[in-house]
Amino acid sequence: MADVTVRVWRGNAQGGAFHEYRVPVEEGMVVLDVLHRIQAIHANDLALRWNCKAGKCGSCGAEVNGHPRLTCMTRMNIFTPGETITVAPMKTFPIIKDLVTDVSFNFQVAKKIPAFQSRPPDAPDGSWRMMQEDIDRVQEFRKCIECFLCQNVCHVIRDHEGKKQHFAGPRFFVRLAELEMHPLDTGTRTGLVKEFAGIGLCNITKCCTEVCPEHIRITDNAIIPLKERVVDEHYDPVVWLLRKVLGKR
């Protein structure tokens, strides 16, 4: 098969540029294979993250022709032959080097989300009883591989750096929805969703859902249900009135 021309952004926090490489491409290759070839042939020190190369670990996210994607799941045959392919690092996070970015923002947010708290066991042997229908919804959220492509594409933090202080991002709405709808969890987190996670900043433009490699329907199944739960607690005037009249709850 023919050679392909790839422009890879290389540099660090001080700045950088696109470097152009030509590498041979064979059947079935993905963008990550091409990057590995560049690494092996032209640039031993090309920095990139990857682990499983099977779409399960979520390490190798980058922007391929401007689209946030996992490079290990982006087949070369989706491009028109002869097309120059551009690979740039995720834009929302500070650059470390080449395609590697500092994603520590996500780990900081994760730390601030209160832990799961289960109800006491249902059976004397210390186990619980849950039906499959109780957990189907939450299992979808737990497919998340933490590739952070949703965080990267979300314009709230992508285009408005200052909002990182007030907004947890789609990944953590998925996490919060998971806890909120977990059949065993006893915590109530709507206040947290509204204040700390800043769900009101989300304008449900759905890019997180579009880029999710696990096809989690982030907006419809996690964010909007959370918004509705926040409305229950904080914005519904009738509920508010009823609470005033009947006393708390």
Binding site: R7, W9, G11, N12, A13, Q14, G15, G16, A17, F18, H19, E20, Y21, H42, E63, N65, G66, H67, T86, A88, P89, M90, K91, P94, I95, T101, E161
Partner: peptide, 23 residues
Amino acid sequence: MAIEAVKHAGDRGAAPTALRKDA
């Protein structure tokens, strides 16, 4: 190897933006 200069987006020396070439 051709090297092309890129303008950096403001404060972070961040990666290039708006690279989409599709419609």
